[in-house]
Simulated scan of single mutants.
Amino acid sequence: MNLLAMGPTASTAGGLGIMILYIAVFGGFMYFIAVRPQKKEQRRLATMLSNLENGDSVLTSSGFYGVVIDISDDTVIVEFGNNKNCRIPMQKSAITQVEKPDAE
C-alpha cells in the first residue's frame, strides 16, 4: 500500500521537471527569434540617428526622399524635391535610412 502512494508523486515530480524544462527551452527560443533581433535593430537605428548630419539624404517612413536641413533634439527639418521651398519638420524616429553625401 505504501508503494502505491509513492508512485504517483514520483511521476508527478518528474513530469513537472520536464514541463519546466520545456518552458525554459521555449523561452530561450523566443528570445533568440524575437527579442534579440529587435533589440539589435533598435541599436542600429539609434546609432544611425545619432550620426545624422546636415546635408544627409534620408528616406522617411512614409517613403519620401529628402535632404536634412536642420537638426534639433528630437526633430529634423527635411527638404523634399527640387523645389527648395518644401521644408517639413518631422520627428527623428520617422527616418528609416540615411545616405551620406559623397566626399568627392
Rank of each mutant, 00 (worst) to 15 (best):
N2H: 11
L3T: 12
L4V: 14
L4F: 08
A5G: 03
M6L: 15
A10D: 06
T12H: 07
G15S: 10
G15P: 05
G15N: 13
I18S: 05
L21V: 14
L21H: 09
L21F: 11
Y22G: 13
Y22S: 12
Y22P: 04
I23K: 11
F26H: 12
F26E: 15
G28M: 15
F29L: 13
Y31V: 07
Y31M: 09
Y31H: 07
I33L: 14
R36V: 09
P37Y: 04
Q38W: 12
Q38Y: 11
K40G: 06
E41Q: 14
R44N: 10
M48V: 03
S50R: 02
E53N: 05
D56V: 02
L59V: 08
T60R: 02
Y65H: 14
G66C: 07
V67T: 03
V68W: 03
I69A: 10
I71D: 08
S72L: 07
D73R: 14
D74F: 04
D74Q: 13
T75P: 02
T75H: 11
I77M: 05
V78F: 04
G81C: 04
N83V: 14
K84Y: 08
C86N: 15
I88P: 01
I88F: 03
I88E: 00
M90F: 06
Q91A: 11
S93F: 02
S93W: 01
I95M: 01
V98P: 01
V98H: 03
K100L: 00
P101H: 00
D102P: 03
A103E: 00
A103M: 01
A103Y: 01
E104G: 03
